[in-house]
């Protein structure tokens, strides 16, 4: 029952994360900003619109958003919630989760290629390029956690993270968290990898791939992006928030609060740093990779 409640909470709360990010950025920019619940309204409005399809597209273009959303929904069933078990938790589930996100990416990229627009293809090209550097970093960060906790499922790994572990292996966990954070920014197309607020097609990654989508398809994409933000953010929140209390309500509340703190941190980060040049993005992801490798080495030497 609690597992289902957790999942439903994720489904309802994730669009709010983007609202928080936007509000924080507006605050730093001295603006009033869009309402906190704007994404909900957008989604509702888009679901009731009739889509427009390019004549060069096929069924694949319509299937892209569906597969993208479906894969992220399944991946979320694996992601732990405040260090508690999710309902698709098994040994090795982290591999399935990463590959499901890969499936979502593959579907989005193919849908973008289906339009035959250079700009969308450009975005797709960047998306696959950055994934090549982000995924090894992500896997190795999880491997460091697996070696540290001796667990092979995401839920068990994060459940095994106690304050005592943090105290004894702070450096390893800090490195892992840093690596996860960079991957989180890159995979969700946030600054400094991609700027969601950019208005020039040439400089976009994620946004440009969704240029031709409209109506419910666009709603699926936007919602999928919000869910993915939660999926990867939840890992960071679980990492920095070792479980203390026995009460599910307290834990859940604290966890959700942490998610919003994370969103606020992203907002602050986006307000104070600029987007990197595309040529430099692989360097950033390489840095995440080296964090993961160092974490593993430290963990191995313990």
């Amino acid at each position: 029952m609690k597992v289902v409640a957790q999942y439903l909470m994720v489904l309802t709360l994730s669009p709010l994360l983007l609202g928080v990010i936007n509000r924080v950025k507006a605050f730093f920019g001295g603006r009033k900003g869009i309402p906190l619940f704007q994404l909900y309204r957008d989604l509702f409005k888009l679901l009731h619109k009739t889509p427009v399809y390019s004549r060069s597209t096929t069924w694949l273009f319509r299937a892209g958003p569906i597969v993208g959303l479906g894969a992220v929904l399944c991946a979320l069933a694996i992601v732990p919630f405040s260090g508690r078990h999710s309902f698709l938790a098994f040994d090795g589930d982290l591999i399935l989760m990463v590959y499901l996100l890969g499936l979502a990416r593959f579907a989005t990229v193919l849908a973008a290629l289906d339009t035959g627009s250079s700009f969308e293809d450009m975005g797709a090209s960047r998306e696959v390029q950055f994934a090549v550097f982000a995924e090894p970093a992500f896997f190795l960060a999880l491997a460091a956690l697996a070696r540290g906790t001796g667990q092979l499922s995401l839920s068990a790994m994060f459940a095994g993270l106690t304050p005592a572990v943090w105290q004894s292996a702070a450096s390893v966990l800090a490195l892992v968290t840093a690596a996860l954070f960079i991957v989180f920014l890159a995979e969700n197309s946030r600054v400094p990898v991609d700027d969601p607020n950019t208005h020039l097609e040439l400089t976009m990654i994620h946004e440009v791939m969704a240029l031709d989508h409209s109506g419910p398809d666009l709603a699926f994409i936007l919602y999928g992006a919000a869910l993915k933000l939660w999926a990867l953010g939840a890992l960071i929140s679980c990492a920095v928030l070792p479980r203390h209390s026995a009460s599910w309500f307290v834990d859940s509340g604290r966890f959700i609060l942490m998610m919003f703190v994370l969103a606020a941190a992203v907002g602050v980060l986006e307000s104070i740093i600029a987007r990197l040049r595309f040529l430099k993005v692989p360097y950033l992801l390489f840095t995440a990779f080296s964090f993961s490798v160092l974490a593993l080495m430290f963990q191995a030497a313990r």
Binding site: V98, G102, V109, L110, G116, A131, V132, P136
Partner: peptide
């Protein structure tokens, strides 16, 4: 992990170039 993502880039390219677009 690297092979997996590279392969998916490679086959997105192959499928996209042959079957998608104009």
């Amino acid at each position: 992990a690297a092979i997996g993502t590279l392969a998916s880039a490679c086959f997105a390219k192959a499928f996209g170039a042959v079957f998608l677009g104009k």
